[in-house]
């Protein structure tokens, strides 16, 4: 049982990694720290909740597949929620962020994202109240994995999902023409325009991808823990910490950063108490800014 806390940390890191990948992509391509990213996580989780309930009222009671607490219905709802969250991000970009980018005022965009995040979170409380919700009432039993370690099927599913998604996004960036364009826009948007890249289109796709990944991580968190309006906001500091520890713009970095944050949080819960968990991200953030501000996989400026 002594190593169980490490496994718990790795599982927490899986949901973090999905969100941190979105943060690192949008941060490097849109060139501002988006404080509303956490809200995409919460909105994704709630949209999936509503869509799954809708599907339930059409097709009958909740369904489960195999050993999991969820079934194809939630997966479908999660996919739709990811798309809808992407649309929310696009609309926000059109109404707010694009205009501020056009003025060349990145810090003002950060500030506007702060205002947007408060509104989005409060709006969830208006719509759903702050009472925690669950995708399923199913009780999951942790299975022994050997070496005294235990995990629920749901946890293993989230772990697998994070790995597959991470590899997929990394391949998208390194192997595809869209990925090449995204890297080019991240480095130098003006030159990208000169080279003939439709920068506005690449930015739209970046929003879709980042917000979609956030929604998926929200659903994963909802399956493993619960759905609350503040779930994304509470994840924001760990996400920024993971993205900066890994190096802004690097997808493998976001995964390693998430692993560092997740395991460090688990260690803190075990050795210092659960109430200090939220301080871990700050300590890691301070440490990386002191020692290596470009992060583990970032480039030296």
């Amino acid at each position: 049982m002594t190593l169980q806390w490490i496994l718990d940390g790795v599982i927490a890191a899986a949901t973090l990694a999905l969100g941190a990948t979105g943060v690192t992509l949008t941060y490097s391509n849109l060139r501002f720290a988006n404080f509303a990213h956490g809200e995409f996580i919460s909105w994704g989780a709630y949209l999936a909740l509503t869509l799954a309930a809708l599907a339930g009222s059409v097709f009958g009671t909740a369904e489960v597949a195999g050993p999991f607490s969820f079934g194809g219905r939630l997966l479908l709802a999660a996919g739709l929620a990811a798309a809808l969250t992407g649309v929310i991000a696009l609309v926000l970009d059109m109404l707010v962020f694009r205009r501020l980018r056009a003025r060349g005022a990145a810090v003002t965009a950060v500030m506007a994202s702060f205002g947007v995040s408060m509104s989005l979170r409060a709006l969830l409380e208006v719509l759903y109240t702050s009472r925690p919700r669950y995708y399923s009432e199913e009780l999951e039993i942790a299975m022994p994995l050997g070496a005294g370690l235990r995990a629920t099927p749901d946890q293993l599913a989230v772990l697998g999902l994070a790995l597959v998604t991470g590899i997929g996004v990394a391949l998208l960036l390194s192997r595809t023409s869209l990925g090449r364009q995204m890297r080019a826009v991240a480095e130098n948007p003006v030159l990208a325009e000169i080279v003939g890249i439709d920068v506005a289109q690449v930015i739209r796709l970046t929003w879709l991808l980042g917000a979609g990944l956030a929604a998926v991580s929200g659903v994963a968190l909802g399956v493993l823990v619960q759905v609350r309006p503040s779930m994304g906001a509470e994840l924001l500091l760990p996400l920024f910490a993971a993205a900066i520890v890994g190096g802004i713009g690097s997808v493998p970095g976001a995964f390693v950063g998430a692993l560092v944050v997740g395991v460090a949080e688990a260690a803190t819960v075990r050795y210092a108490g659960a109430e200090w968990r939220a301080a871990v991200s700050f300590v890691l953030l301070v440490a990386v800014l002191l020692v290596r501000p470009t992060g583990l996989f970032g480039r030296q400026p």
Partner: peptide
Amino acid sequence: HQRIEAGLAYVPQIENVFATLSVEDNLAL
């Protein structure tokens, strides 16, 4: 970005390559 389609290519004086991309990726763009 559309003027390129019309046959007009521009090379700026500075920062005219993507430093973090490979030579091949720069051309492939």
